[in-house]
Design a protein around this nucleic acid. Structure first.
Lengths: 208, 208
DNA sequence: ACAAAAGTGTTGCGGGTACACCCATGC
DNA sequence: GCATGGGTGTACCCGCAACACTTTTGT
């Protein structure tokens, strides 16, 4: 009974939620897009295997990463049990190994890209969990740089939720409830008007 | 790499949240209390294995049962990966096989009973999930008989949440929002005053 | 008659949503 | 001077929490 992990790595790029897929270099399903994943190394824990996969593909490791669900009979894969994880990364910190043989690349989640095995199911599940977590945690910290404008933070929310939010209500929520605080510094480059930069009061996952 | 399932089976008994434990008949940890579980049968899915374990121990199968979390390195068990599930049963419908060699029995969750492997961790996690689910789903349907008094339903909530609730606010919530409806029948036996019997508008898991 | 549990309404507060205008800067 | 995006305050609504007394029945 073989156990594998797969990681759903999300980022927000150009106001769209994106997921990292690789092009399979080996059979089965050679040439098709799939989630990064694989079997555990000898003695490796599930969390460690997920972190390793994440770092292999993106170069980052200090981000939000959480176990999602355990599937069996996922497509025609070799593993009989697949433990899925999901991660959130700031695209500005990632360095994809695009020259590697499996060509990792970002794909917009909508419309859903064609994927091998039953990876679409895993992605949909992860997306739903992400939307829920947005509402009652600070996980979005993991999708943004250390300092950011509130507009950018709002765009991140809008990209994930798929709906527009009211600027003033959004500000009140996130600053009023102490999720982020102003740094006193301003964004200068190319902005029509300098915008206040904010930071999270905590860069650890927490429930609000 | 062996995969096992374990099932955290909860019920409410005498105003206390209880969990079903078995006494291990074989090494390792012979004689200690542990969650029911075991390896998958050949070709069996995870969900099917969990349902089978649940039915073996309690005799019921049409109840709330959901995957919880996947652990590795749980205690000194044989399996390297343990997929946990949790279930909610009405104690009135269960028939424990108490004469079997592993003597299944109900144990109050607080104070936490001593358990083999790291089963205490699994139970705590399941309890937390249950408390959360109570607030935004109708899962409690699975802990009650078909018809019940609102007082009994409220006691079930109080047993799980560990705090007392206001009678009038509770009624408004559950009847006002259409989670349960009055049947028109009354509880007659031994009651100080006949009480209206209610039923769930749906006996399927749903988010409110 | 008394103990035990069922049943029933109102008020206040807080969080969430809807909504429109002015200002500073870059071009 | 104009287009772009940043920043700000108020009013309403609804869900939630707090709160006390009367009624029926069994003993």
């Amino acid at each position: 009974m073989a156990v594998a992990v797969v990681v759903v790595i999300f980022t927000v790029r150009q106001d769209r939620l994106n997921v990292l897929l690789i092009e399979r270099a080996a059979e089965p399903c050679k040439g098709e897009w799939a989630l990064p994943g694989g079997l555990l190394l000898p003695g490796e824990t599930l969390d460690a295997a997920a972190r390793r996969k994440l770092e292999d593909e993106t170069g980052v490791s200090d981000v939000f990463l959480e176990q999602l669900y355990t599937f069996d009979r996922l497509g025609e894969g070799r593993a009989e049990v697949v433990v899925s994880y999901f991660a959130l990364v700031d695209i500005g910190r990632t360095r994809l190994r695009s020259e590697s043989e499996w060509r990792p690349a970002w794909h917009p989640v909508r419309p859903a890209p064609p994927t091998a095995f039953d990876n679409g199911r895993v992605i949909r599940y992860a997306e739903e969990r992400l939307r829920n977590k947005l509402e009652y945690t600070n996980v979005v910290y993991s999708l943004l740089p250390e300092r950011f404008t509130l507009t950018r933070m709002q765009q991140t929310y809008e990209a994930i939720l798929g709906e527009r939010l009211d600027k003033r209500n959004f500000r009140r929520r996130v600053v009023g409830l102490g999720i982020v605080r102003p740094t006193g510094r301003f964004e200068k480059q190319g902005a029509h008007r300098p915008a206040m930069l904010y930071e999270f009061t905590s860069r650890e996952p927490m429930v609000l």
